[in-house]
Design a protein around this nucleic acid. Sequence first.
DNA 1: AATGAATGAGAGTTCATTCAT
DNA 2: GATGAATGAACTCTCATTCAT
Lengths: 220, 220, 220, 220
Amino acid sequence: MPADPETPLRVDARRNRDQIIAAAREIFARQGLDVSMEEIARAAGVGVGTLYRRFPDRDALVAAVARDNFTRVLTEARASIAEEPTAWDALVRFLRHSQELKLSVQLAMVSPAAASVMAGDVLTDEFRDALLRELDAVVHQAQAEGVLRKDIDTGDVAMLFALLLRQLPSTDDEVARVGPDRCMALMLDGLRAQPGSPLSGRPLTSADLNWSAKRQCPSA
Amino acid sequence: MPADPETPLRVDARRNRDQIIAAAREIFARQGLDVSMEEIARAAGVGVGTLYRRFPDRDALVAAVARDNFTRVLTEARASIAEEPTAWDALVRFLRHSQELKLSVQLAMVSPAAASVMAGDVLTDEFRDALLRELDAVVHQAQAEGVLRKDIDTGDVAMLFALLLRQLPSTDDEVARVGPDRCMALMLDGLRAQPGSPLSGRPLTSADLNWSAKRQCPSA
Amino acid sequence: MPADPETPLRVDARRNRDQIIAAAREIFARQGLDVSMEEIARAAGVGVGTLYRRFPDRDALVAAVARDNFTRVLTEARASIAEEPTAWDALVRFLRHSQELKLSVQLAMVSPAAASVMAGDVLTDEFRDALLRELDAVVHQAQAEGVLRKDIDTGDVAMLFALLLRQLPSTDDEVARVGPDRCMALMLDGLRAQPGSPLSGRPLTSADLNWSAKRQCPSA
Amino acid sequence: MPADPETPLRVDARRNRDQIIAAAREIFARQGLDVSMEEIARAAGVGVGTLYRRFPDRDALVAAVARDNFTRVLTEARASIAEEPTAWDALVRFLRHSQELKLSVQLAMVSPAAASVMAGDVLTDEFRDALLRELDAVVHQAQAEGVLRKDIDTGDVAMLFALLLRQLPSTDDEVARVGPDRCMALMLDGLRAQPGSPLSGRPLTSADLNWSAKRQCPSA
DNA sequence: AATGAATGAGAGTTCATTCAT
DNA sequence: GATGAATGAACTCTCATTCAT
């Protein structure tokens, strides 16, 4: 019993943990959150008992999957910024690549059930803050570059971006493939519009995005 | 003994039925489909038994709520077309007003669970087809008006529109109020962009949107 | 509200009552006791409310059906005795004709659920006693006639007879038609056997058949 | 993960399974099939969950109890044949001992509800066929021995025998004890009658007893 | 008096979680 | 440490019975 939470897990335990998260991510993405623990354990090739040894309850597993995904998104965001020549390019690449993460990220932010799970999770908050800091920088710089319209702020971009992070209603294969790309391109054109049409309210900043905080729904 | 389904319900039965659908719509919108029948019945002010007398099972209730909403959307679409001076205005008003229906419409098209319930429902198919016909007309006319970009088609508009029909991650009140409006305005600017940035694939038509048709997922 | 239970029902009420009993008899015979009140009411062409006005609860209906059948059996028993030349012939005819009543009579005596319903019902007791009195006479006289073996009594005959009052496992049509007849003939040969094989215990009299009395199963 | 159904159960699981079947047999015999799963679980000393882990649903439990009993009957039939000096003695012993199994066997063949559960069950069919083969041999040999009347066949014996496999209306203890024995003896005398009275139809063979086969009743 | 709508207790079944092996 | 068996609360749905129309 490692009293110290920092104590790294034994290799096999670590492997189990990873397998479970991977399996859960896959299944959550494919079928939504409504899966039994039994099924996740089976997909991960372990018994339920093992699953529960790693994650005290269902919510802990969901949170872990969500955290895992935030990390991936953050990593990708940083890579985009580091490797692309302009902030606008970084933003585009980030959005485009995050498409790949769509299936999993949506769970972390979209499902009301998942959201309530994440409420108040410290690690999640940190990740989100870090992500928003990066995004802030890109957005403001893209505006300085003159490509991104000036009457918006990071919050607006993030919201638009969040919309894309949902699975579209399934259609046939071709549409499923190009549809999201086309939507994104249309959105990017909207973000680039100069002059755009007047927007109601004020630019929404990253501070306006206290996602999932102050949640009160007790049951969901 | 009204064996005939056409036989109108008794007034009180009718009232109950309406209350149930209203309550279900409200709750589904707020908490998603994952609500117990008990809870819906309570919200509607009736007993579970009554709920089940009206709707043979959970799916029947979901389907009824969905159909109810399709009707509302269709009505609003037609009103927009009839009353607005230009097709573009009609499109904008439709999208804007459908915002109000957002909470409920999403159930009909977005949730995979709901989608599987609707699969093969004749009435739903009719509503969808009627809706797409109206949308087709508006879109093409708006392009003729020169406002809507030419490299897209009804399917693209509908997809973008469908994205908005999701509940945004809840934030504080002000953001929740203006956020969707701003997103929509940005999207509209994207749809209006002339010239827009190049889009991948070909314009998606209304025929590409065989939502929920030919579904085979056995489990969902 | 007729304070006097003797007050005859109005003609239409009477007709309803009869229709309900007839419908219930039919359905009970065909599908067993496990039928909803709704279904019985529908088969009788009345609403549930009417059914409940006539029979205060489910058990009362079952009891009424049972009593109705006892009456029929008793009538047939008396007719057999009156019209047949020998007691043995009367017995045979009675058993053979009661075959026709089988489907319904079994409910009154066979199903444990029904039995518990009948427990302590005064009218049922009277009918049964009357029936046994008739049977006693026939049995003893048939013994006096020298046809029926002497080492048995009415209780034995009744038990054997009760066995036949069950629906045989369904087979194909031909078997279903002749099977019961053959069984009965074999039983009659057993009853006629002179000398028969030794029987354990003592002859069972009609007094030994306190069917369904002193029942204690509370739930069934 | 025993995907293989052959994998033997863990000892404790096995013990629970047996307890459940035993409890179910007892209760079914006493009160009929109309018992709640809760009650069966309680009688077996386990939770409902355990019951459902072992038997996916109510029908599976009924089927398991039935199969268990067919095995017992078959075993007894074979022992009778092996150990008794004549076929007639084997038949008598079999019938007499199967009396003990009466309470449970009736479930397998008598209740219409149970019958529909067993329809198409392969194991049940095998057991029944094996049982009828044994019975065929005994019956024909007993006829060769000159004890059993010649105008009947296995089907007739089985039908008569099946009648006994029902619970008699309960009476007082003494009668309940000797009653079935006396009935059986009377039946045996009927089977032995030489010459017996003429029987309608033709001898029913074991092939006539396609119990519960080709069932099509969808509701029962 | 008749009808059928409403009710709610209870049955079958699932699944998150605990615990013996 | 891992496993999967056991548990029981919760959910969906049915039906005997009551009550407004």
